Simulated scan of single mutants.
Amino acid sequence: MVLTLHNLRPHEGATRLESLFLRWFRKLTREAITLIDGVHAGLVAHYIPHGHYKDVYPATGPVSADSDVVAFVGAVRAYKGVDRLVQVFVNHPSNEFRLIVAGGVSDPRLGDEVRALGGHDERVELRLTSLTSNELSDIIDQCFLIVLPFREVLNSGTALLALSLGRPVLMPLGPGSAALQVEFGARWVRTYEGDLTGDVLIGQATQARDDIRRGLGELNWESREWDEIARRHAEVYYLAAGMVRER
């Protein structure tokens, strides 16, 4: 068995049965793959980064400092801190920016909470429904910054999606965001420490727009090209099977 470490533990906890299966899987694991170099959860793990999404979603236009939209996109779940994002945005007096929250909600109570927080504010647009690839790309195309205020996260596919479509991201500081920042630069991957506040959000958005005017620089995706990732995965699976792959 080959185990890929996406996160160190389930986002929303695990049932007793799930915990038993996870422990069993670890005992069966021959090789492990980590998506962040140095994060291995006690296993000897091969570092293979997650691939980009440049060819998966419809292309967006270049990021523009003329946009006033910051956005959260993706499934709305409790650990992602969307309620906190809407709350601090609504409570901040600045009228300089607009907020879009777009993505499906699996917990009706969370959806109701987010609507109660932001539904009355004309600066906030809530699209709490599952999105097609075209709809997702269209929303990202409108904004200049993607905000991902996760309460706890190691890897974020949404962050990679945003970067793949040419949009900088704002995330809490942690191993995953720190690694992305080293790879892509602090202008593309912005971080904050502690709880998200309105001043942090508006301040980071203002700085992000200034950076866009100065130029963000080009992103290098060489290590995240899918052909290279496939080759490295194949090598790990050959190791797990006790085979030596011919080159």
Rank of each mutant, 00 (worst) to 15 (best):
13 G>A: 08
190 R>C: 07
215 G>Y: 08
231 R>K: 11
236 V>Q: 05
196 L>G: 03
136 L>R: 08
45 A>Y: 00
183 E>Y: 04
42 G>R: 00
50 H>K: 08
165 L>G: 00
233 H>G: 00
165 L>S: 02
14 A>I: 02
217 G>I: 02
62 P>Q: 07
169 V>P: 10
130 S>D: 12
182 V>W: 01
23 R>Q: 14
172 P>I: 00
20 L>H: 09
169 V>L: 08
212 I>R: 01
236 V>N: 04
74 G>K: 04
218 E>A: 15
71 A>K: 02
162 A>I: 00
87 Q>S: 14
189 V>C: 13
103 G>N: 06
54 K>V: 12
144 F>C: 07
196 L>R: 01
62 P>F: 01
158 T>D: 08
97 F>C: 03
149 P>M: 06
93 P>H: 09
69 V>M: 12
38 G>M: 04
19 S>E: 15
26 R>Y: 08
70 V>L: 15
4 T>G: 07
54 K>R: 15
174 G>C: 14
210 D>V: 12
239 L>F: 02
245 R>D: 06
140 I>G: 01
149 P>G: 05
105 V>T: 04
78 A>Y: 10
126 L>W: 05
228 E>K: 14
154 L>H: 06
162 A>V: 01
126 L>Y: 04
28 L>T: 07
93 P>L: 08
58 P>A: 05
187 R>Y: 02
83 D>I: 00
214 R>G: 07
21 F>A: 14
61 G>E: 04
195 D>E: 15
186 A>E: 15
242 G>P: 07
180 L>D: 10
143 C>P: 05
30 R>M: 10
67 S>W: 13
57 Y>V: 04
171 M>E: 04
141 D>V: 09
57 Y>P: 04
125 E>M: 12
